[in-house]
Every structure is written in structure tokens, then in C-alpha cells.
Design a protein around this nucleic acid. Sequence first.
DNA 1: ATACTTGGTGGAATCGTTTCCATGGAATCG
DNA 2: CGATTCCATGGAAACGATTCCACCAAGTAT
Lengths: 341, 341
Amino acid sequence: MTGPSITIKDVAALAGVSPATASRVLSGNPATSAESRQRVAAAVAQLDFHPNAQARALRSTKTNVIGLLLSDVRNPFFADLAHAAEQAALAEGLVTLLGNANESIPQQDRYLETFISQRVDGVIAAPQGEGSSSLHALLERGIPTVFVDRTVNGIDVPSVTTDSDSGIRQAVEHLARLGHERVGYIAGPQTTSTGRDRLKSFSRAARDFGLSSDPALTYFGDFQSASGSAGAHHLLGLAQPPTALLAADSPMAVGALATLNRKGLRIGRDIALIAFDDIEWFSLLDPPLTVISHDVEAMGRAAVGLLLEVIDGRKPESVVLPSELIVRASSGTPDPSLGQP
Amino acid sequence: MTGPSITIKDVAALAGVSPATASRVLSGNPATSAESRQRVAAAVAQLDFHPNAQARALRSTKTNVIGLLLSDVRNPFFADLAHAAEQAALAEGLVTLLGNANESIPQQDRYLETFISQRVDGVIAAPQGEGSSSLHALLERGIPTVFVDRTVNGIDVPSVTTDSDSGIRQAVEHLARLGHERVGYIAGPQTTSTGRDRLKSFSRAARDFGLSSDPALTYFGDFQSASGSAGAHHLLGLAQPPTALLAADSPMAVGALATLNRKGLRIGRDIALIAFDDIEWFSLLDPPLTVISHDVEAMGRAAVGLLLEVIDGRKPESVVLPSELIVRASSGTPDPSLGQP
DNA sequence: ATACTTGGTGGAATCGTTTCCATGGAATCG
DNA sequence: CGATTCCATGGAAACGATTCCACCAAGTAT
């Protein structure tokens, strides 16, 4: 069906030059005559030649491929991030090898091994857990790496993260002002830096603004929607249930929302709900959801920018992007009749 | 920083065998002694050897990489599809190179060229428009290709698509039963097969069930949310506005939803809304959205299955998956006071 | 015993590029 | 006008794996 594929030798032969010259023309090497350039270009067009990226990479040790490792594209936050990073990379002439770790360390390792074997020029990762062995293998090989969204303790690579603290603090203050005293927190997994940081911020803010610091008000989820449902269910079943819920990411907020709806609670009246991560349609819900928002697009772009610097051999500073509260109708005044059994 | 990388020769030397034998051990060739296997394995572990995928692919003409070309990962439908396909591929030992065409033909071509250069083992594509030049280049090279979600007229490759007709017909019948006569349709771009097929199904069903076939009731969007907003705005501004809206994909439905909310219309009472594509949180809206649902997970798996068959040199039959209406509260009885200026 | 498989092995060619090095001609300089 | 630089070029050696081919030792059939 498919004959022997056309190589640079065929192009060179047709153009009447040597493969070396053809290669120089193709790579834009200035040491070429106008004549050669023109003839090679014509031959390339005529043969519809596509250089073999494997052979090229083998010789030049540059693949123009980067690896993007994240948890789950189905999470809108990561989908936005993937889109932003991929588009930014494309603008720099890099294509993206996508790895979905599915919040699973073995699968993360699987993809990191693949990235190493593929000799990617660099890796952008939202790492799981505490430095897996493959993560160390990556760094020991000196493969340029940046972290995005999350970091790993004790691994010093440039990162672009969100300053969750400011947004969470605003959210807690907002709830406190409205008179909430018991706020349930659906936390992310404590094996991720974002999970830990956001919980810490929440606890500190709760203390600072005089909210209950009852540990029973914290439920540990896994950043996926089912755990948000379970968390809301659990928290509302407490002897002293919270009057407001704060979820550490959007899928868990969606899960919590489902539970609240199922229980017939009126959001924004019977109970307040705030989500970390803004998603386009959160503002379309009834009531619209109060959220802690951050600029995911900027995060993706920044990650690619940092990675390019690392590839260039520099050691860029990490970037921390702000977060802020966007108040909508889902966070209302607590109902005094609640929480009084 | 990073020394000369370790090659199979280093492994062979350490194991006291030839590179040929080491290679055989690594690729599971049975013509190896237990002794060699054991020694090579030990050397690989000790050196933390990762074979160079480029060199391997160059010689063996298999990359174990497939290209996945789709429109936009931010569209939950494609995110689900990407996730399903990627996981299914991974289970077969293939990694996925992701290309986001962004509903743009030049960008689609850019990625297809990349896939060709990367010598991917196969391509799963949700194609834009009518066979671009790069799409033909792909097929002329005999690169195994399957279409997913969409097809292209005149290009005969196996595909896995949704039978939109059944779902749309059910939706139209449902609306007709409720007494709706003027149903606005927010169509997808007519440069995609899904855009065309769904419009055709809608028109036919509208005629069959006695709905108005006023062409003004069809608005042509581009499968992205902004066009859904614009479409709803336009349709509601007609002299005889529709009492129900059907959007051909979920982002456009979200856009329409935003417009309806902004106009203060009560969905399910003042106006009915149905979306093609079910999204987890559509059932969480107030009111929950009536949708035409199909199994995206199955679609992704089927696409990988077909691709593997094509790679194996077979010529599999295309797969058509069913769609069905899921009635929720957003599709209600038309308000008789509407549409009577 | 001789011939003939069998199974493991190593040497060397090969995949398609890039890049080092040498070369030859034209242009520039003293 | 001869010597030097400059530039475009081609030949050939890499890059790191796989795989063809020949080989040798040991086992089996004659």
C-alpha cells in the first residue's frame, strides 16, 4: 500500500544537490545559495516531503515535543490549563504529548517514563503525591521540568501556582460578615500541595475571623466530584451541621451541589456554597455560584514561558498568580433556624 | 549537567553480552537464555536505562504513539472523549499526542503535518470541514486513520459516530406532544458532518411532527458557547419567537442558557430548552436540563478499537452509537401568552 | 560416526537525518 | 598578481536502537 517513504536523499537528488545541502536549506541554515534554496523548496513541494522527526531528533537531540502531565482533562480546570499550555506551546513550535495521571501515582509514573523514553524537550507537570521515583528519574536526567498548579516538597523546580490564600481568606471573611459561624470545608487530598495549602489557609482564616474550628467541619475529598457529594452528605449529617460549604475545587463543588439539590436545600438561602475555581457555567446556575477565581489561561501561558527558560538553561523565578473572591448569589445569610437542634 | 546518556551498549557491556542480545531481551524476543535475561535486567535496573524511543522508531518504524485530533478540549464532550480514548490507548501500550484544532482548519493542518512528521502509528480525528490537504496527505501516506464523532464526505475511513437522528427525533416529538409549535434550532457549523446531520434530522422531525418549518427558526452557530448566546438572542428577537430551543451541542446550550437567564426567562416555563450532549452538571441546574445523551466513553473506546484494527491491516466496519432523549424539567409546556404579539 | 537441526549469540548493516570536516572557486587584500 | 579570506558545497561519520546474517555449540536423526 505505502511504498518506501521519501527521504531527504530523494529531495536532494531531485533538486540536484547533496543531502547535506538539502538539510541546510530545510533547517534554515544561512550557508545556502538562493539557487539551492529555490530548487530544494521546489523538490520538497513536488514530493510532498515531510522530514522524519525521529531521525531528526536522534541526531540533533531536540524533539520539539513537550510532555504535559496532569490529573484529569475532564476537570474543567485542567482542560482549560491544557488548552492554554498547548496553544502557547504551539505558538513556540512545540507539540504537546498529553498524559492523564487520573490522580493515580502509577499512571503518573507510566507517563513520566514515556516522556523520558520519548526524550521530550521538557515537561510541565501537575504532580501527584510526594516525588515518585519517576519524577526523580526525570530530574536526575536533567530534563527541563516545571510544575504547574501544584508543587512537591523538597523538589526545587520552577513552578507556577495560585496564591490560594488571598481568595480563601476573602471567602471566609465574606462568610463571617454574613454571620456564618460553622463553615464546612471539603478539602482536597493532602498528598497534593494545593490540597494542603488551601486547607491551611482555610483553617487560619477561620480562626482569624472567629469561625468555629471544629475539626469535624473538614471533610477530606479527592478533588473528584463523587467525593464532593459524599462530603456534603457527611457534613450535613453532623449533629451541628454547617451553614455554609466551601469546596476546594470545582468538581467537588459540583458534587456538593448535587447533594444539596437532592436534599432539597435552597442554595444561598438554606445553605451557602462557595467553590474554588471559576467555571464558565457556574455563573449560570440558579443561584449563580460564588467562587474563588484565578486566571487559568495565564497559568498555562506562564508555565510554557518558564519551561522555555529552563530549556534555555536559565533558572527562572517561580510565578504565583493571585486568586480573588467573586461574590454571587450562592453565598447568602445563614438561616437562624438551622444548626439549632 | 547531564552527561552522555546511557545507551543499550552500556547495558550490554555491563551485562557482558552484545547489544544485539540486550536488544532481544528488551523486546521480549524468545531467542534469549534465562542467564542473559537475568543479567540484562539487572544492568537495566542498575543503570536506570530508558531506551531511546527515537532510535527505536527509526529502525523499527513503529512509534507506539497515536495522534488524537479534536476541536477543543474545553468542550466537555471532547474532554470526555479525549480521556476515554487516551485511557483506552494507554491500556494498549500507546501514548497519545493531542492536537487541538480549535475549530480552525489551518491549525488542524498544522497538527496533521506534525503527526506525519512524528510518524505516529495512527490518527483518531474529529475532522474540520471538508478534507483539508493535510488530511489527504495523511491518507495518501497510508497512515491508519479513523474518524470520531464526525466524518468527511468522500473520504472512506472507518468511523465511530452518533446516530443523532433517533435522539433528535425523540426530542422533537417530546416538544410537539407538549404543544410547542415553533421550536428554535441552534445549529452547528454546516462544515461538519454532525452540524449537517443534526440539522437535517431536526428539519425532518419538525416536518413529521407538524412543527413550523419557518427557516428563520434556525440559527447557525459554531459549536462554541458565544454563538449559543447570540443564537438565543437572535431567535427570541424574531417577530414570532420560538417557545422552545434546541441546541446542537452543549457549549451552545450553555450560551443559550446564559442569554435566557439574562433576559429573565424562566426555563421550563417561559421557554423550553434542550441540549445535545449530556454533561454531568446539566442535571444539577435549576431546572435540570433535558438532553439528548450518548455514550462518549464508549465512543472513545470504540475509536481506539477501530484504529487498532486498521493498524493491523484490517478494514473494520464503522460504528454508530445510539442517542436518546433524557427528559428533565427544562422542557415544559409552552406558555400560551408567548408568541402572540 | 556423520550430517542436520536447533537455539543462543555477536558482528555489522541499517533506519533518515544532522553536522563535522575538507574542498574548490570566487572575491578581497596587500 | 599571489596570498588570504569567505562561502557554498559534498562526503562521511555520527545518533541509538533493531535485525539480518553467519556462526558455533549441543542435541537429534540417519
